[in-house]
Amino acid sequence: MSPDLRARRSTAGWLRPAGSDPDARAALFLFHYSGGGVSMYSRWPGFLPPSVECRRVQLPGRQDRLEELAFTELAPLVTALCEVISRELDGRPYALFGHSMGALLAYRVAVAMEARGPRPALLGVSGWAPEGFSMPGRALVEGPAEGIVALLRELGTLPGGDLDPELSARVVASMRADLAVCAGYRDDRARVGCPLVAYGGRDDPYLAPGALRSWASRGDGFLGVREFPGGHFFIHDHGPGIAMDLVQLLHRHIAG
């Protein structure tokens, strides 16, 4: 049995917080970037009003799920995510948002939920586009650890200097698995029926100029691009602004 199939056996522990808020009008599911975890959204519960509950998605193979097998293929990961989210739905509207690899996951979950139902009320994508994004190649995914460490340092997610060997091995393993998920993606130009909004950093080196506009062809409800100062990880400095915009759009489309 492949690691991805074994990892699908359990979908416990995917969400932070584990329980839903019965008083919220809607839920916002957040997907983290490659090599990361829910800690990137640690401040987001404070950015959202009581009407929108914050449900952070933690993939296996990192942080407090380090002992679990990480996914290395996109399709089984999306299937597992749909199962997790479907069990949380109780008739209230929900939105999906992700940054970088998280944007890819949010998009493919929205596509899958289009057929499975119910579809999300809003899809927010950040730092990734279906066209014009520099995806990792198999050479990096299957190459030596030094290449992945160099990428992590380039991204700013690992400090310079010597690293603890055990910590380095763990970080590299989760990043390698996530890069494999991304490298295996083949664009089928799938469309979503829900409103879609894109966010990006003006100086993101991984996005070609105008790449975020490619989202306009992925659905009838494209709400445009919001650009912020910064590079690929602009989200760390502009979380409140992104969250506020998502909440306003979600409330607008719930009311509509």
Rank of each mutant, 00 (worst) to 15 (best):
H99M: 01
H99K: 01
A255H: 09
S10I: 04
C182K: 12
A80C: 13
A26Q: 08
H251A: 14
R218S: 08
E53S: 14
R8K: 01
C82M: 12
F71Y: 10
G46Y: 08
Y94D: 05
W128P: 06
M113K: 00
A198W: 12
H232Q: 07
V247W: 05
L249S: 09
A7M: 05
P130W: 07
A26H: 08
G127W: 01
A211D: 09
E131I: 03
G132L: 05
D220S: 15
S134H: 09
M113R: 07
S217F: 11
G241H: 13
M175P: 09
A169E: 15
R213C: 13
D203G: 00
A190E: 14
P165D: 12
F31N: 02
L123Q: 08
D237M: 07
V52Q: 11
L246A: 12
L15Q: 07
Y107I: 01
V172Y: 12
D164A: 06
E53G: 13
R153Q: 15
E154N: 10
A173R: 15
Y206L: 10
H32V: 12
S174N: 14
G241Q: 15
L207E: 04
A243I: 05
R25S: 10
L69W: 01
S51L: 07
E114C: 02
A26Y: 02
G102P: 07
R138M: 08
T79D: 15
A177I: 08
P165F: 06
L81N: 04
G124Q: 05
S2M: 10
V172N: 11
I148P: 04
M1E: 00
I242E: 11
A70S: 05
G124R: 09
L152P: 06
F222I: 12
P76C: 10
R119W: 07
L167E: 13
A169P: 08
L179G: 01
G241N: 11
